[in-house]
Amino acid sequence: MKPAPFTYHDPQTLDEAYGLLATLENARVLSGGQSLIPMLNFRYVQPDHIIDVAGIAAISGITYKDGILKIGAMTRQREIEYSDIVATHCPLMREAILQVGHRQTRNRGTIGGSLAHLDPAAELPLVACAMDGMIHLGGSRGTRDVAFTDYALGFMTTAIEPDEMITGVSIPTWKPGHGSAFVEFARREGDFAIVAIAALMEIDASQTITRAALAVGGALATAQRLPEAEAILVGAKANDETFRAAGEACTQIDAVEDVHAPASYRKSLAGVLTRRALKAAAERTK
């Protein structure tokens, strides 16, 4: 299990990287390598060119300004895990990141890599989905920002054009005092989830839900929002009855089936985990 031959490039600036992407055929961007290198070792992908973007300082780092959390594509998952900015402004991402792989893979893996790989059960795309994340793409033809819903086109398929790369993601954060929860069911610690649910909620003094977001991962071809359940939540009281109804709505998804679990199980899990996530999110509101 060794990678097929490729030519290696390590641009030090974005322009350099864009230039390579524009001119090279069958090139793949390498960031942390935690998704791409297994694919190379299995020879599931055999790019002619590898463009290692680790040297591009401009796409690494975490900032927060005017309600927007911005994370550079090359930012390692470990840095997100230990970031005070993330913990303060985006507790959902902080909770999710602890469930991404293991210490050894979080030390190397990047948020850009996770978004580009777009495994249907991956945690970070699910956070981007739940929070209306904006994916920043760049290339020699210019840059563009794509909302997650337009970015995730299908099973491990993104809107990134062959001459483009991810440079970062912006997450509009929720008001202080909101509650969130990231709940997943995996067979073992660190495994990809069979189903994962991300939930966010704001409630007013009368315990009425004023804003809610729910997204599911692992159950469909890609992370997706659950608008029917969201509609049940907004305007309703934050109580078990409401959460149960929202959970019930989530069991209606058109879940995928594979060797690990039948669709019926994923639907049922989506309902259970939604209820649990909403309960936890509600408890965390202030």
């Binding site: 390590d10 390498l30 390598g33 290198i37 297994p38 050894q104």
Partner: peptide, 19 residues
Amino acid sequence: CTVLIDGRSARSCLTLAVQ
């Protein structure tokens, strides 16, 4: 295959030597 790269654990099978 875990080693420490700059003091942080990493899978050396998921790392190219050039990295």
